[in-house]
Simulated scan of single mutants.
Amino acid sequence: MKKLSCFLCGLIITFCISSNVYSQELTTEQRGKITSEISTAFQKSIQAAENLDAKLLAGCVDDSLQAGFIVGGIFFASFKEVMADFEKKAVGCKSQDLNVVNQRITVLGEDRALLVATGDYSLYLEDGRTLTGRFAWTIVYSKVKGEWKIIHSHM
Rank of each mutant, 00 (worst) to 15 (best):
L56G: 06
T118L: 02
A54F: 06
N102Y: 12
D53Y: 07
Q66G: 10
L123P: 02
C16Q: 06
T27Y: 04
K94M: 12
D63S: 08
I139P: 01
C9P: 07
I139K: 00
C16L: 15
I38H: 01
V91H: 08
T14R: 00
E50N: 12
K94V: 10
F75E: 13
T106E: 14
R129M: 06
L131T: 09
G32A: 08
Q103G: 02
I38P: 01
V91P: 02
Q47H: 08
L98G: 07
T28I: 05
E50G: 06
D63M: 11
V100A: 08
Q24D: 05
A117G: 07
S39L: 05
T27V: 04
T132Y: 03
A136M: 13
S39V: 07
V101D: 14
T35K: 12
I70C: 11
M155W: 11
C6L: 15
T40W: 03
G73Y: 00
L115Y: 03
T27Q: 04
I139Y: 01
R104Y: 09
N102R: 09
L123D: 01
D120P: 00
E37A: 11
F15N: 09
N102H: 06
L114E: 05
A49I: 07
D127N: 14
I12S: 01
E25C: 04
F79W: 13
R112H: 05
I139T: 01
S45R: 03
V82Y: 06
S95G: 12
T35C: 05
R112G: 09
C9Y: 12
T138S: 13
S45T: 01
D127P: 04
L11N: 05
H154I: 09
A90M: 14
C60E: 09
A113W: 01
T118Y: 00
F86L: 06
D85M: 13
D97I: 08
K88M: 15
L108S: 03
E29D: 08
Y22K: 09
N102V: 04
I150G: 00
L108T: 02
F7E: 02
Y141S: 02
A41C: 04
D111M: 07
A41F: 00
Q103D: 07
D53W: 06
S39W: 04
F79C: 03
K80N: 15
F69R: 02
K89T: 14
N102A: 11
S39Y: 08
D53Q: 10
E147P: 03
V107G: 02
K149D: 04
S19A: 07
L115W: 01
Q43E: 15
T130C: 00
V82H: 03
D63P: 04
K88Y: 11
F15Q: 06
F86Y: 15
F86N: 04
A67N: 13
K44D: 10
E87L: 09
C93P: 02
R129T: 10
I46H: 05
